[in-house]
Design a protein around this nucleic acid. Structure first.
Lengths: 205, 205
DNA sequence: AAATTGATAATTTTGTTAAAAAAGTCAGGA
DNA sequence: TCCTGACTTTTTTAACAAAATTATCAATTT
């Protein structure tokens, strides 16, 4: 026999899937609770039975999405041949994550400056994971003797992540287009790899 | 005798000053043509005699502001002891420029994606000057043998500028505050100098 | 003629309100 | 415990008038 709790979890999972699908395609503000309920052939009221309100449903979806990303990072940690490989993985994985979920994140762009704390916690958590991956890669590289000992690896990694962010932000803002196309994306990737390259050399003896 | 044209230029200059003062303190959208005229004890209609409309008055002020910045750059070009000094100068000068004119640039943040072409031309011009300064510094450093020969100095400098931009953007967005305070500003400066440092080392042999 | 203005036209922003849409609640049924 | 239809409350949208602001221009001064 399947317990009631399990059943609930299964249903919650279904709701999260449907909600994710809607949020991903139409963004937060353009999807209604009615539509999500309709996709699942259930009443809107039932959504409220499982989730207290729309924003918390969104947060739940976001936790799942972020969780998948986190997992893809932790699966790979300490598996890199060298620092450069780790940087490349970080650049490509994060890039993929953002492109795949672009519409989903309209919630961010919409509310901009005043997001609920729960959201920031998730963002911090993601950032923390990215940091861990790269800090670990840096420490390994130091042990291997590939680069100089680093007093504060966290600081260095945070700096690189900020810098990499700048490369994308500027590239996107300079072209008028909101949705970068294939060539544009690979141009950004190339720039970021170049930056990572110079950065690594800058850490060497 | 003073010619009519000179007189006109003097008056235009006065108007630009008053407009700059208003734009700087209250931003584009919060200053009215009436207020500018009032500050000069002239009628609003006279403003329209000298400038075709508000946006072109703003652009004229911007050209002056950008011109000053450009001059401060070109005055210093090729005067640096080494590459690092040039980077530091760029970081500090640009930072100062942005902080000093923060409110003035609300026009940018307001219209965000669809600014008139004239504005973009000025932005490009400023960017071009910043590039020239640093590209020249890089070339000099290459000649001096301080860093490896660089195939495409423009690309490298553009990359660094984007990266430096990211360091500020991220630092500002992470703290909630829109107006970074003194300590925050010096923290950003420190990060950018660190990045420049690593970057330079990454260009060495 | 060039510089200036008051009056006024045209446009944009703001405020108001009613209707529509969406969020959120709840008593009651399976 | 899970679920729904009907209901209430809140938010968004649309329409429109009022107010503020931009912009024009005929008339006046220098």
């Amino acid at each position: 026999m399947i317990s009631a709790i399990d059943q609930q979890d299964v249903k919650k999972e279904k709701i999260l899937e449907a909600a994710h699908h809607r949020f991903l395609h139409y963004g937060y503000s353009k999807t209604t609770m009615n539509e999500i309920a309709g996709d699942l052939s259930m009443s809107k009221a039932l959504l409220y039975y499982y989730f207290p309100d729309k924003s918390q449903l969104y947060v739940a979806v976001m936790k799942k999405v972020a969780g998948d990303y986190l997992k893809s990072l932790s699966d790979k940690i300490n598996t890199f041949a060298d620092l450069k490989e780790a940087f490349i993985f970080q650049i490509d994985t994060q890039h993929d994550f953002i492109v795949t979920n672009y519409n989903f994140f309209d919630f961010f762009r919409l509310n901009e400056q005043n997001l609920p704390d729960v959201i920031w916690e998730i963002v911090d958590q993601v950032h923390e994971s990215e940091m861990q991956l790269l800090v670990s890669a840096i420490k390994t590289e130091v042990e291997r003797g590939g680069i100089k000992p680093v007093a504060n690896p966290e600081e260095i990694v945070a700096l690189l992540l900020d810098a990499l962010h700048g490369v994308r932000a500027k590239s996107v803002s300079h072209k008028k287009t909101m949705f970068p196309n294939k060539e544009h994306l690979s141009e950004i990737r190339a720039k970021r790899l170049l930056l990572a390259d110079i950065f690594i050399k800058g850490l060497m003896y």
